[in-house]
Design a protein around this nucleic acid. Structure first.
Length: 537
RNA sequence: GGCUCGGUAGCUCAGCUGGUUAGAGCGUGGGAUUCAUAACCCCAAGGUCGGGAGUUCAAGUCUCCCCCGAGCCA
């Protein structure tokens, strides 16, 4: 069974922003972590492209919806590519195969008696694509989120009988692992406890949508259509658009990572839809927080949006990935602070980790004939640094499995600090000046080199590029954690080292003592450039 | 208005079922050192734990009230 993981399917109303980048980066780290452990991963992202809002946005720009969607979704695709996101699926809900999946799914739901006609009356926010029930301000209501006037709607729609699923959904959201973090779970439980009402799944007079079979004039409500994108995404390129086939490719999802604003759709509506169609439920829905910038909401009106493309260009992928994953507790809201960003990147990545590698390879080359020193006593797993490294790596795994990127990063930092401290205590540069100490110095350096290698190996899911650069400084090949893992080719490690565990690029290189004494080390080059941000991003 | 979270050093946060002088990292100040990306290592200053009352031998940690921030629902 593959590990199936999704980002939200991003709405193509606007260009990608930092929030979607954050979600996607986090998912990428998870995907890489799973792959490195030998899991086959189906990593899904894509775009949600239907709905009245898109229709209007396109019209306002003088474009047809299709042209608009093509342009914006290409932008998402390109952005993920330039961030080296390792998704192996990218679904657009305007693809023909998706339409077919939606039709098949709907047929199941309808056959199950869960579709009825009903009158939908109320104030509608096109920006939210949602009805707002706010009888209090009925005179001149506006959307609390978008601060735009609501539109009065009164039409016959198709409804999904969500109310039938009150009990199973209650049970589902009460189970401890389904919705996380815990604070969000309570939120969802309260919502469900309030009683589930049928919700409309079609719209009249919204041509930019998938027509509802057998219901002239109706198109599917964007959310109904969008959620199903997770299923159609699973189809491989040459697959016929068949729901059963899609399912066999990796359903149910192991994890939906979403922003907290769309929790209800994923934790309540979506599971009910799946139950109705007789499909398995996703195992986990994780609602992460939002990013602010220097304490303020990012928005066009404030003119303080942080453009992911610019950020990437000026700072590189590693810096941003590290900062976002390391500093913001995953699940909580976070604040992007430029000073802190550069402080943490420079401290953690350049000073603590990068410099550790740099100083150690430099000494090893200088005193041991340009290569890895004789290991001596440092080859034993009972070496203090070997013990510390093993503990750190166990902590790292636990934290990553729990989606606690921050804790994972910290375990690595502590390891690097220990190694730096070890060097300062042992002071090989002093010891080298005394006769007969080469063996002792060699062992110390070897141990620290091994710590550096461990760090490089463990960093792979969080900052794959940096990991590769570090390994290269150690004369080792990069780990393959990206979507190219999907080819199934067994990746040989390096220099004849054991590659026993099939399918895993990680376990074979996670043992202590794999560096071979005498192997040459390349000339030390800083693996991480310091961030010198003299102007605001 | 109801419900739910949070308010701990300048900043980001740890502090489990209440129990020695409240912790970490960053930032700041000082020291040591030279292998290294002005890096590393060590030390220090800095908090009446949002405010008030209560329970207790003992409260950041429990109860109540209030203030502030965020969110969900009305």
């Amino acid at each position: 069974m593959p590990f199936t993981l999704t980002t939200p399917l991003y709405y193509v109303n606007d260009r990608p922003h930092l929030g979607s980048t954050y979600t996607t980066l986090a998912c990428d780290a998870i995907a890489r972590f799973q792959r490195l452990q030998g899991q086959q991963v189906e990593f899904i992202t894509g775009c949600d492209e239907h709905g009245q809002k898109i229709q209007r946005t396109a019209a306002a720009a003088g474009l047809t919806p299709q042209v608009h969607c093509d342009a914006v979704s290409a932008r998402f695709r390109d952005l993920w590519h330039s961030w080296q996101i390792s998704n192996n699926h990218f679904i657009r809900t305007t693809e023909p195969r998706h339409r077919a999946i939606v039709e098949q799914f709907f047929a199941r739901v309808e056959a199950n008696g869960d579709v009825r006609e009903g009158r939908q009356q109320g104030w509608y926010c096109v920006a939210c694509e949602e009805y707002k029930d706010d009888p209090a301000a009925a005179t001149d209501p506006s959307c609390p989120v978008h601060q735009r006037p609501l539109e009065w709607r009164d039409e016959m729609n198709l409804f999904f009988r969500l109310s039938r699923y009150q009990e199973p959904i209650e049970r589902l959201v009460a189970s401890p692992d389904f919705v996380s973090p815990a604070s969000r779970q309570r939120e969802v439980q309260n919502f469900v406890a309030g009683g589930l009402k049928d919700f409309s799944i079609s719209r009249l007079d919204v041509p930019w949508g998938i027509p509802v079979p057998g219901h002239e004039g109706h198109t599917f409500y964007v959310w109904f259509d969008a959620l199903l994108g997770y299923l159609s995404a699973l189809l491989q390129n040459d697959d016929p658009p068949d729901l059963e086939l899609a399912i066999s490719r990796g359903w149910p999802a192991d994890l939906h990572v979403i922003g907290k604003d769309i929790l209800r759709f994923h934790a309540v509506f979506w599971p009910a839809m799946l139950l109705s169609a007789g499909l398995e439920l996703p195992k986990r829905v994780f609602g992460h927080g939002f990013l602010t910038r220097e304490g303020q909401k990012m928005g066009k009106s404030l003119g303080n949006v942080l453009d992911p493309e610019l950020l990437l260009e000026r700072c590189g992928p590693d810096a941003v990935r590290w900062y976002l994953l390391r500093d913001i507790p995953f699940g909580d809201d976070g604040d992007f602070q430029q000073q802190r960003f550069s402080d943490l990147v420079n401290n953690d990545l350049c000073n603590t980790i990068g410099n550790l590698l740099n100083r150690t390879t430099s000494m090893a080359r200088k005193w041991f004939d340009g290569g890895v020193p004789p290991a001596g006593a440092a080859l034993k797993t009972s070496h203090p640094l070997a013990i510390t490294a093993a503990a750190a790596s166990a902590q790292f795994d636990d934290a990553m499995a729990a989606l606690e990127f921050r804790g994972a990063a910290e375990s690595l930092l502590r390891l690097a600090e220990t190694a730096n401290g070890y060097l300062n205590t042992q002071a090989p540069w002093k010891q080298m000046k005394q006769p007969g100490q080469e063996a002792a110095v060699g062992a110390d350096l070897y141990a620290v080199l091994e710590v550096s290698r461990s760090l490089a190996v463990l960093l792979a899911p969080l900052v794959p590029d940096l990991s590769a650069r570090m390994l290269s400084q150690l004369g080792q090949p990069a780990l393959v954690s990206g979507a190219d893992r999907e080819t199934g080719d067994v990746v040989t490690t390096e220099s004849g080292l054991a590659t026993t565990e099939s399918g895993s690029t990680w376990h074979p290189v996670r043992q202590w003592g794999l560096l071979r004494p005498g192997d040459p080390l390349p000339e030390p080059v800083p693996v991480m450039q310091r961030l010198e941000l003299d102007s605001p991003l």
